[in-house]
């Protein structure tokens, strides 16, 4: 099986969607890309085919299946997930969980060759009883307060049930940890960008990042060739939070745990703040994922955790002097 002739991509407006499509189009003689989204992306005008599908629409699965069959899509890359959690819980659930359900139904009807789904290592949950390295087979415990994590766990559960029933379709699930890099932004990056970073008093967890280019590399390979399975997309190495902040010359503001939870809850409930409820548990307990399997399958990452962090901080410093 060579390169697929046509790749469908959802979520063209996300960082991952934009950069992945750029990469797929960059090679001459590459596959035809079919974009599926709510809005026609102007940056790809004339370079990709586009179909407007609202994944939250109750009839989206039938519509999508017809498109996939008509266009002869072989590979489906499902990236229509929120980058940062929003206050609109209902829409998040409709888009992430129900939208994925529609995608799965359509893929089953269209008998696709391959399905690539983006996921997160946050789904393992930050818990005091985690081992130092979480394997791909570890239970997805999630976090009861973080609705974005719960939605995605539902997606993974749907997928786990769907995969054995459709043996003709290869399913690749790419769980990525926190992404750092010169151009990537989400609520985690915004949290780390502050000059004074609130941390939890008495805790100094080990953190792990992946560089945006390394992550894109893995997604591109998964779209182009066959790599079935679940993979933790992470960088090599771990660093404690205090050491990361010291490297970047940022101040830490240690706050007692109950105060920090309350402080983080009010703005997110008032729909003004960024880090949602439950975010700070990820700065309290271990949730480092094991990437050995991914590195064996997709090759060594170029950037380590420390280098990914340095590339973010360096890019922000340069922006200041531009």
């Amino acid at each position: 099986m060579g390169e697929p002739a046509c790749i469908a991509v959802t979520g063209l407006d996300t960082f991952l969607g934009q950069r992945l499509v750029e990469r797929l189009l960059a090679r001459p003689g590459g596959p035809r890309v079919l974009g599926i989204d709510l809005q026609r992306p102007l940056r790809f005008a004339g370079r990709i085919d586009f179909q407007r599908v609202d994944l939250t629409n109750p009839t989206a699965d039938g519509q999508l299946a017809r498109i996939l069959l008509d266009q002869g899509v072989e590979v489906f890359v499902h990236l229509a997930f929120r980058r940062s959690p929003t206050p609109d819980l209902e829409y998040d659930h409709e888009l992430e969980t129900i939208g994925s359900l529609h995608v799965l139904n359509a893929c089953a009807a269209a008998k696709l060759r391959r399905l690539v789904v983006s996921s997160s290592t946050m789904l393992y949950g930050a818990r005091p009883d985690n081992p130092n390295f979480l394997c791909e087979t570890h239970r997805l415990a999630g976090h009861p307060d973080a609705h974005c994590v719960q939605n995605r766990i539902e997606v993974e559960n749907l997928l786990a049930r769907w995969t054995p029933r459709h043996p003709d379709t290869e399913v690749t699930v790419l769980r990525r940890c926190w992404v750092m890099g010169p151009t990537y932004t989400d609520h985690v990056v915004r949290y780390f960008e502050r000059p004074v970073v609130p941390t939890m008093m008495g805790y100094d967890p080990l953190l792990q990042f992946v560089h945006e280019e390394d992550m894109l590399d893995v997604f591109e390979q998964a779209a182009r060739a066959s790599h079935p399975g679940v993979f933790n997309v992470v960088g090599r190495g771990v660093l404690p939070l205090s050491m990361l902040l010291a490297l970047a010359g940022k101040r830490r503001l240690p706050l007692p745990a109950p105060l920090l939870y309350r402080l983080s809850n009010y703005p997110s409930q008032g729909q003004t703040g960024d880090p949602p409820a439950g975010f700070y548990d990820y700065l309290r307990y271990l949730w480092v994922a094991d990437g050995e399997q991914t590195w064996a399958e997709f090759g060594e990452p170029i950037y380590s955790t420390k280098e990914a962090w340095i590339s973010l901080v360096a890019a922000r410093r340069l922006e200041r002097y531009r």
Partner: peptide
Amino acid sequence: RQRLATLGMKERFAAVDEFGMD
């Protein structure tokens, strides 16, 4: 430019092993 941006970061020894031993 790159040197300036990463000033004081790359040279700094910051390494723990994978279980956090420093």
